[in-house]
C-alpha cells in the first residue's frame, strides 16, 4: 500500500537519514521525500513529507519503530492518487523522447501519467498528445504540472493546460 507521512526531525545533519532508515529497515520503498529547509516548526524542528510503498501488515511495526527512535509522526494516511488532470502537448513529441517526458512525471513518486492518447498526422509533422496525470494531492499535481511545463519549454512543446477555476 502507498502511505504518506509527515515526520518531524531536528534540523541537524544526519537526522533526515536517521528518520528514513526505519522505513527501509521495515522493507518499505521510499517513493518521494519533500524536505523543506525553510519550513521550521515552532519548536525549531523540520517537517518532512514522505510517500512510501509498504506491505500493509508491516505498517504498525514501522510506526512503532519510528516512535522508538524518537521520530515524531505528525500525520500519516493511506495515499492514493485521487487528483486527476489532463493536459495536451503539441510538438515533435516522439523525436524529443516521449518516454523521457513521461518518466519525468512518473519518477516523482507523487504523480504519474496514467493514460496517453497520441495523434500523429504525418512524419515530420507535429503530433498532439493528451496526458492524463494522477497525483496524490492538489499541491503535488501543481508540482507535476510545473515539471511538465519546464520539460515542454526545453523541448519546444506547446502545453495546453486545463482552465483551473
Amino acid at each position: 500500500m502507498q502511505v504518506s507521512m509527515k515526520l518531524e526531525i531536528r534540523d541537524t545533519p544526519g537526522h533526515l537519514v536517521a528518520a528514513l532508515m526505519p522505513i527501509s529497515d521495515m522493507g518499505g520503498n521510499i517513493k518521494t521525500v519533500i524536505h523543506e529547509h525553510d519550513n521550521l516548526t515552532e519548536k525549531g524542528s523540520l517537517s518532512v513529507e514522505v510517500v512510501i510503498e509498504i506491505p500493509k501488515e508491516r505498517l504498525s511495526g514501522l510506526l512503532s519503530l519510528l516512535q522508538e527512535r524518537g521520530i515524531n509522526v505528525i500525520r500519516f494516511g493511506e495515499e492514493s492518487m485521487h487528483y486527476q488532470q489532463s493536459v495536451i502537448l503539441i510538438g515533435h513529441l516522439v523525436h524529443t523522447n516521449l518516454g523521457d517526458t513521461i518518466d519525468r512525471i512518473d519518477e516523482t513518486g507523487y504523480a504519474e501519467v496514467i493514460r496517453m492518447s497520441i495523434s500523429m498526422p504525418a512524419i515530420n509533422e507535429r503530433s498532439s498528445a493528451k496526458f492524463t496525470i494522477k497525483a496524490i494531492s492538489h499541491e503535488h499535481m501543481d508540482k507535476a504540472i510545473d515539471i511538465l511545463r519546464d520539460v515542454s519549454r526545453k523541448k519546444d512543446i506547446l502545453m495546453i493546460e486545463p482552465l483551473v477555476f
Binding site: S119, S128, K130
Partner: peptide, 18 residues
C-alpha cells in the same frame, strides 16, 4: 497559431474544447 485540429479532438474526448 501553433494549435492543431488533433489537439481540439483530444480535448473533445473529455467533453471539452480549447
Amino acid at each position: 497559431d501553433l494549435l492543431t485540429e488533433e489537439a481540439i479532438r483530444l480535448a473533445e474526448e473529455q467533453d471539452a474544447t480549447i
